[in-house]
């Protein structure tokens, strides 16, 4: 297990180093988040629909599509000089490769969310101070779920034409459960409802994470081996 984690960290560190050196996807995702939030902020009629009713959906639509940018780049950078072939010849286990990519994607998406959340609070003036901890908790749980599935599909489509489009089409149906859960919990938290009301959704998100991280770990070798 220590070897698996060490190798996963080696892959994740390399991916993050590459991303921080080029900053292409990170900057794109951050700009995208800011633009979407700005558009929703100025493009809605606050007298027609209460902000508090709309805000959770806007938050999660923004996070989801910004995360897609990260997931698209996860295996694209392995196509340069056929680095993926080198990884597959090396003693790196497929599990470590998946976990490494998953970890790098989680860090990447977390950074986007860490910038997106304050912007969301700023634009929509929602009270998050009292519920910050559970809100961060639900963001973390939902993010792990959809990044786990997204990392798997990113590997699956990377050798296909129109990989970026295909990823979105394949991924979105699988994101329905964690997105519904995340929106429901966020709505209850921002609406000042007791945390116990959201307990069921928290459990659903946790179950989704456990199920899909395990399943994706098992299926990943089939997506990269010829």
């Amino acid at each position: 297990m220590a070897d698996l984690l060490r190798q996963a960290w080696t892959v994740a560190r390399k991916d993050l180093l590459l991303e921080f050196r080029t900053r292409t996807a990170l900057v794109s995702a951050l700009v995208f988040s800011a633009l979407v939030l700005t558009m929703f902020n100025f493009g809605r009629d606050p007298t027609a629909v209460a902000t508090i009713d709309l805000a959770p959906t806007i938050l999660w639509v923004t996070f989801t599509f910004a995360a897609m940018l990260a997931l698209n780049r996860a295996f694209q950078l392995e196509l340069e000089n056929q680095a993926l072939e080198g990884l597959l010849v090396s003693p790196l286990s497929r599990t470590s490769l998946y976990w490494g990519k998953l970890l790098a994607n989680l860090v990447f998406v977390a950074l986007v969310e860490a910038v997106g959340l304050p912007l969301f609070v700023l634009f929509f003036d929602v009270p998050v101070g009292r519920v910050l901890l559970p809100l961060v908790g639900v963001i973390a749980l939902a993010t792990i779920g959809f990044v786990a599935v997204g990392t798997l599909f990113s590997a699956l489509v990377i050798r296909t034409r129109f990989a970026e489009l295909l990823l979105v089409v394949l991924l979105l149906p699988f994101l329905v459960p964690p997105l519904i859960g995340a929106v429901q919990v966020t709505a209850r938290l921002l609406g000042g409802r007791p945390l116990s009301e959201a307990a069921g959704w928290f459990r659903l998100l946790a179950a989704y994470d456990i199920g899909f991280v395990s399943l994706a770990t098992l299926l990943f070798p089939f997506t990269v081996d010829e």
Binding site: K14, L17, L18, R21, T22, L77, E80, N81, Q82, A83, E85, G86, L87
Partner: peptide
């Protein structure tokens, strides 16, 4: 050693 270098361009 294959047809490509397997090296990351930005490292």
């Amino acid at each position: 050693i294959g047809h490509q270098s397997h090296l990351y361009g930005h490292l």
